[in-house]
Design a protein around this nucleic acid. Structure first.
Lengths: 241, 241
DNA sequence: CGCGTGATTGAATATATTCAAGGAGAGTGG
DNA sequence: CCACTCTCCTTGAATATATTCAATCACGCG
């Protein structure tokens, strides 16, 4: 599916779009770019002149310390306008890396600026996408601070399933979950060894079944209970904004 | 200082403001409200029709679990437009509480919407304020996931000093730090007992000196080193946005 | 087949928690 | 003016959770 249609689908989860807004979005010139798994898409401190939408694959926002410690602060899947931040910040203080081989669609900041000058409602919706990101950070902060590893991992699975499902990329309690145990540790702020042990616990409990990159959960409500997951923060209810 | 002038000062740290933008801001009708320490300013799930600026005092964003566990995800000081989120989200999934007795200035969402329709550049700057919030969440996530309690607490002190200092509310290595050890634990995701022990360690090392709510640090560079603090994420450099 | 990446296991250790008491200081009321 | 209370800070000991270090295993790929 073309990048803009993915984005439109994403925006329609939150509000109606007027025909002129859809035209404006379709009028955005996009450049497609392909990245290998583990490639750096954006490096900390490098000035950016484009923002990007994920077309295919998973992407991570990653903060690294000098000593090699690493924290993944966000995950992005197809349809996510993942780099609106650099539109106003100009540079990022973290890296954006490809979790899987991926395709992204880039838009010039100059075009986005034109859009903000002529389409206030559309601007508010793009703004809102970054506010949903912020709400997700708050959830992740709460998990990181107050949840044990079992709840944390269960929550990440719930979140990724709901996000993928909302844009038609997962269904039937199955999702493609391409994170290695090390990467999942970088998401949860724990070591890969501990991730391994907790995943085994979740499997023993029958909460998840893994088969390579495929992840299946027989009982959604049990997983939700283990995660204390409430999807409200994802703002998946359309309303006038 | 009037709320709008605090906000203008805050915006000028990031970009120039045109005279018509300053007029537009001054034209915003504000309602002042006073809250006692520990009072709830916004409750999770309650629809909001106003967004607010802190005029005096400290405010916290707080996420609570049913079992009493609590995580503070953000701190706000005078000048912060702390509730722009509800402008587009309508409801928040967390509480906003008064850390100290405080005064806030409220703006109707309808007025903000008018502003976004007529002042694109000002809209981008308000948007940007929420992106700085997001950048702060990312830093906090990284701390929570990968830093020990000593680094974490040192970082929070650094951040609050820089933020207060940037708007003239702290200087000379001294700041008013009104968090109790329990609240600081809720910020760092640790127990108040552990906060207590780590604070003692920081005092023994000569990194901080506390005297009631007043906090003094003799050597900024030592504190920065302990925290591995880099203020880039606060975007305190003015540029065209 | 060999190599590399990622998953798994075990044992010792570190970091932070829990539970359970005290202690210090500010403000209140008799 | 002093006891009283409340909140916040401090201390100690036992325990839990996650880490570190050191191997080993399994699988896909050239």
């Amino acid at each position: 599916m073309p990048a803009i249609d993915l984005l439109i689908r994403r925006l329609r989860l939150r509000d109606r779009l007027a025909p002129d807004e859809i035209d404006a979005l379709h009028g955005l010139p996009l450049t497609l770019a392909r990245f290998e798994r583990r490639a750096h898409i954006v490096r900390a401190g490098v000035p950016q002149s484009k923002s990007s939408i994920v077309v295919e694959g998973w992407i991570a926002r990653s903060n690294s310390f000098a000593d090699g410690r690493r924290q993944i602060t966000q995950l992005h899947v197809p349809g996510d306008f993942f780099d609106l931040h650099s539109f106003l910040m100009k540079t990022l203080e973290h890296d954006i890396v490809a979790v899987t081989a991926c395709t992204i669609a880039q838009v010039d900041h100059a075009r986005l600026r034109e859009l903000t000058a002529s389409k206030p409602h559309l601007t508010r919706l793009l703004w809102m996408l970054t506010l949903v990101d912020a709400a997700t950070y708050r959830e992740w902060l709460t998990l990181m601070g107050r949840a044990d590893a079992r709840q944390h991992i269960a929550f990440i699975v719930c979140e990724m399933y709901v996000r993928l499902e909302s844009v038609g990329l997962a269904s039937d309690h199955i999702l493609d979950f391409p994170l290695t145990q090390e990467e999942l540790g970088d998401v949860c702020g724990i070591t890969p060894i501990h991730v391994n042990r907790v995943l085994q616990e979740l499997r023993r409990e029958g909460l998840i079944v893994t088969e390579g990159r495929r992840l299946y959960f027989p009982d959604w409500s049990k997983l939700v209970a283990a995660a204390q997951f409430d999807p409200t923060y994802l703002c998946l209810t359309p309303m006038e904004r």
